[in-house]
Amino acid sequence: MAGLALRRCVSPAVYLNRRLSAPDLSVGCSYHKKVVDHYENPRNVGSLDKNAKNVGTGLVGAPACGDVMKLQIEVDDQGKIVDARFKTFGCGSAIASSSLATEWVKGKSVDEALKIKNTEIAKELSLPPVKLHCSMLAEDAIKAALADYRLKQQKDKEPATASI
């Protein structure tokens, strides 16, 4: 158990840095190439206007490792997610998970996006068991962003229905 906790909290950035600086030396413990790809070239990094009515923001954190993840979605009038952005301060797996999550939600409807499961993210990135919580963080971030969007939409509708 202690070993597990250790491995979980050892900053993977350490490995990544080492890997990047001395690629020939680190054959043993390295990330899957998809994780490294997302880590090196993260997709959709940045922020959307969190005050916009068609933007949902999800902010989540993992208390055990202290990672924070922000994921935002922009939804058009048809309920389709047209843009997504993220910012993650955490390990390589957390960055890769959220980067992949933004790629996946784009083009989906709100209901479709809700169906994205952390297991799918973990499978796509070949995350080891100790890093599964990173993919959970990404799933929760998507859910939180969608919930925020829906809340805004409801608030928007309520006064309208009240006035009718």
């Binding site: 902010l59 989540v60 954190g61 208390p63 055990a64 919580h133 959970m136 963080l137 929760d140």
Partner: peptide, 12 residues
């Protein structure tokens, strides 16, 4: 133990 997932602990 501290929760692994996005804890209820983490307030916005």
């Amino acid at each position: 133990r501290l929760e692994e997932e996005t804890g209820s602990v983490a307030d916005q």
